[in-house]
Structures are given as C-alpha cells and as structure tokens.
Design a protein around this nucleic acid. Sequence first.
DNA 1: TCGATATGAAACCAAATGGTTTTGTTTTTC
DNA 2: GAAAAACAAAACCATTTGGTTTCATATCGA
Lengths: 121, 121
Amino acid sequence: MSASVQKHDVFQAIADPTRRDILRLLAEKELSILEITGHFPMSRTAIAKHLHILSEAELVSGRKIGREKRFRLQPESLDELKQWLSYFEQFWNNKLSMLKHIVENQNETDLKVIKTDPDKL
Amino acid sequence: MSASVQKHDVFQAIADPTRRDILRLLAEKELSILEITGHFPMSRTAIAKHLHILSEAELVSGRKIGREKRFRLQPESLDELKQWLSYFEQFWNNKLSMLKHIVENQNETDLKVIKTDPDKL
DNA sequence: TCGATATGAAACCAAATGGTTTTGTTTTTC
DNA sequence: GAAAAACAAAACCATTTGGTTTCATATCGA
C-alpha cells in the first residue's frame, strides 16, 4: 500500500510540452504559480500539478515568499538526460563511429541475405 | 474524426524505460521483434507497440526481411533532444553564465522582499 | 478585523498508456 | 500442401495522466 506513488523522473517530467514550456519560462526568471499560469490556457491547479511533477524530478525548486510560492529552474538534473544522450552521440555526431556502425550492420545484413535467400544474388 | 491519432514525439518516446532499453539494444545491432522481446519480461505484442512508438518518433526504422521485421537505431532524431538540452546548458555547465543567472535572480528576490516586506530588514 | 489574494488539497472525469489475449496473414520449411 | 514461425491488427482492461471543480487555509492590505 505504501511506496506506491512512484516519483517522476526527468524523462517523464520533460515528456509533456507544457512542462517543457514552464522550464523555459523559469530559465528566464523566478516566478510564482499565478505568474506562470498567466502564460498557459489552463487552470492554476493544473499548473501547480505540473510544478509538483517538475519538483519531484528536481528540475525546479519552490520556496514560499509570503503568501506566494516562487519557483526557479534547477537545471542540474538535466545532466542525467545529457549523460543518457551522450551514449548515443557516437552513433551520429561522430562521423567515423557512425560509418563504422553502418558498415558493421551492413555486413550482418549481407550475411543474413546470403544465408536465407541465396537466389537473390 | 481524422487526424486524431496524434503521432508520438521524441520526448514522449524516450519517457518509457522499456523504450530506452530497446534503443540501447538497437544501438548494438539490428534485431528482429522476437530477438528484442527475448530481453524483456513482456509479450511480443507489447514490444511491437513500443517499436511502433519509437518508429513514429523516427528513433528506429524497421524493414521486413522474409517473414521477420528487423529494427535498427535511427539516432538522428535524438538531435532534437540535444538541441532542446543545449538551450539549458548555459545555466549549469557554463559556470560563468550560471553564476550570472543566480546573481540576477538573487537581485530580483531582494527587490521583491524590499518591496513587499520592508520590516524584515 | 475583514475581504481579497495565493496557494493547497481533494474528488472527480475523459483520454492516453502500457499491458494482455485472440484472431488472421504472410513466409518458411519439410 | 500443411504445419510452424514471425508478425499485424484488433478487442479488451487496469492504471496513469492531465485536466477540471470545489473547498479549505494562510497571508496581505485597508
């Protein structure tokens, strides 16, 4: 029963376009919930929920100032995303690695064709 | 009625951990649906659905070879993710930009406190 | 002190998500 | 030509998601 409310991770957090837009806004400056809501065609409660999810992913942090709660960007968590991305970069940014990858795959394909359908040659 | 089946984008595609694992697998080599399924505790149909979503996001491409369909990584689409990330990098990787950002936000905060609660000083 | 402001929290809802099982089609293989 | 293999497509289902409305609480300003 407990521990069932699985925290959101960075990948889920940025999956929603509204949340990505919120991050853009907060990159500019710290903003209250109402100020953020002003930029979107939805209710304050909806925005508050998005902020909660972004908080869980530690992409934003909020602090109470008087009666309002102001949020700011906490970009460090985006590093997890960058790390994940970096693994795949060898397959497209680095031309040599990419070429190597393609050639290796092509060889496998050829072997497969030879094995399963020799008439095609 | 038509055009309602909204295509998945890269952000949604990588939100699911199973799909991220599939991408890792396909980075190694081209694989058929059944070969991929062998790595996961779920049915072939479930994997096929994940592959369909990854295809929509153009992160993988599939081609029929005989009776099997083999998928390979198509990493170019990850560039959209990289572009998105790059906007935020100024706020944490570049120490100078980050410091500038923090200082600017801190100034705003101070002004706010002065304006709304002068007694606190 | 009292009304307005800013938020928190809960109940509710439709649609999307991530899985299943079932049925059908194409391609191999013997 | 028939059985098996690999997949596609569809129906179904529980849970999550992304929104709403409603109500409660804390703080500010006159």
